[in-house]
Amino acid sequence: MSFPLSHVTSSSSSLEAHGWDSGWAESFAPYAAQGLVPGRVTRVDRGQCDVATADGIVRADTAFVTPHDPLRVICTGDWAAIDPEGARDPRYVRACLPRRTAFARSTSSKRSEGQILAANVDHAVITVSLAVELDLGRIERFLALAWESGAQPTVVLSKADLVPDPVGLSYLVEDVETVAPGVQVVPLSSTTGEGLDVLSAVVAGGTTVLLGVSGAGKSTLANALVGEDVMDVQAARDIDGKGRHTTTTRNLFVLPTGGVLIDTPGLRGVGLWDAETGVGQVFSEIEELAGNCRFHDCAHESEPGCAVAAAIEDGSLPVRRLESYRKLIRENQRIVAKTDARVRSEILKDWKRKGAEGRHAMEMKRGRVR
């Protein structure tokens, strides 16, 4: 049995709330000719997934879309082609449409595999709790992954009601803005409603993913945006602001004001995954300065004519910022080097060069080189 494309197009109007558009319809055309029906994955759990179709949420088996590459496994936010109703039991996901964007990180496993957190995302809301001291380095990590994914990041400073001093709150916002060039920073309180209207306007169009560590208030924020208690909420510990993993799966919800929201479990680790472009975006001021260095391969250490070192010296570039940049660049290179022989070779050459320079400097110090 097969359905003409016109049937899929007309019956897909209920999918528009989940983000269906003419582009997805065009991509789905070959599967429509096979009699399959479109749907968006709202949840994945142990070899099965929930899929939002024109006829509602259905359960489907993922046995046919489980590739060895962990970056290609089906994920919340994917658009899928599944068996039509009544074709067989259980129904199967037969294919996933090519992703427009994908939010990926490296796992904590020794194999350093990539992991897809959400697919086809337009906005990445990085949730940071003001119940604890700001970790600017962690925010930079989240931002690098968000920019690399192709999504537009926004930083939400949750639990803003815990900072009653408006001046103190403005200073915290400024601190985050300094590490988030080109990113909107929104102080927000789900208790008082402060900032909810601003964030609602941001997420009203497209698909948004909520990101952050446990205890950041993502589930509370999800409930506030959806307008009902769709996620369980548990209190964070007072001593460090950390919470238990209230959210254990990635869930997709349609927002009453328009748009789609994906809530994710709290992330203990935020490892980069081939995020060179994202790192460059986060530290755009350093990369701009580097373009003015005398040497194109300047390491920004002791080279003459280094514009980055000059900015450190005159105080226009914080030392912490440069150290964080170097740390993320090194981490990303190690990840990429595991699968790219060329990068491994370049890193090895750099180590040898630095080793030779170090030995030469030691010889000069000992007076053995004239």
Score class of each variant (00 low, 15 high):
residue 356 A to Q: 02
residue 249 T to Q: 03
residue 222 A to N: 01
residue 291 G to P: 15
residue 350 D to Q: 12
residue 358 G to Y: 06
residue 276 E to D: 15
residue 238 D to Y: 06
residue 256 P to M: 05
residue 288 E to Q: 15
residue 276 E to T: 15
residue 232 D to P: 10
residue 299 A to V: 07
residue 264 T to Y: 12
residue 235 A to F: 11
residue 330 R to M: 09
residue 352 K to M: 00
residue 296 H to R: 15
residue 230 V to I: 04
residue 296 H to P: 08
residue 237 R to D: 12
residue 250 R to E: 04
residue 275 A to D: 11
residue 273 W to C: 06
residue 235 A to L: 08
residue 296 H to N: 15
residue 325 Y to R: 07
residue 241 G to N: 00
residue 269 G to M: 03
residue 323 E to D: 09
residue 234 Q to M: 11
residue 331 E to N: 05
residue 277 T to S: 15
residue 300 H to I: 09
residue 274 D to H: 04
residue 236 A to G: 13
residue 360 H to R: 06
residue 341 A to I: 07
residue 348 L to P: 00
residue 227 G to F: 02
residue 247 T to C: 02
residue 332 N to H: 02
residue 298 C to N: 14
residue 246 T to C: 06
residue 320 R to L: 13
residue 235 A to W: 12
residue 243 G to C: 07
residue 279 V to N: 06
residue 238 D to H: 08
residue 263 D to F: 00
residue 260 V to P: 12
residue 271 G to T: 00
residue 295 F to R: 12
residue 299 A to C: 11
residue 334 R to V: 00
residue 235 A to Y: 13
residue 323 E to S: 04
residue 359 R to T: 02
residue 251 N to K: 01
residue 333 Q to A: 02
residue 335 I to T: 05
residue 259 G to M: 11
residue 313 E to G: 11
residue 308 V to Y: 10
residue 237 R to V: 12
residue 334 R to P: 01
residue 303 E to H: 03
residue 312 I to H: 13
residue 336 V to A: 07
residue 311 A to C: 07
residue 256 P to Q: 04
residue 268 R to E: 14
residue 227 G to N: 02
residue 345 S to R: 14
residue 223 N to C: 05
residue 310 A to W: 06
residue 263 D to A: 01
residue 322 L to N: 14
residue 254 V to W: 09
residue 311 A to D: 14
residue 313 E to F: 01
residue 229 D to Y: 03
residue 230 V to F: 01
residue 317 L to C: 10
residue 301 E to R: 02
residue 314 D to V: 06
residue 263 D to I: 00
residue 350 D to N: 07
residue 282 V to P: 03
residue 276 E to S: 15
residue 291 G to W: 12
residue 327 K to D: 05
residue 343 V to T: 14
residue 305 G to S: 11
residue 331 E to F: 01
residue 223 N to M: 05
residue 243 G to E: 09
residue 320 R to V: 08
residue 346 E to C: 07
residue 231 M to S: 06
residue 347 I to W: 03
residue 254 V to R: 05
residue 221 L to P: 06
residue 310 A to L: 10
residue 244 R to A: 09
residue 231 M to W: 03
residue 279 V to T: 06
residue 241 G to L: 00
residue 264 T to N: 14
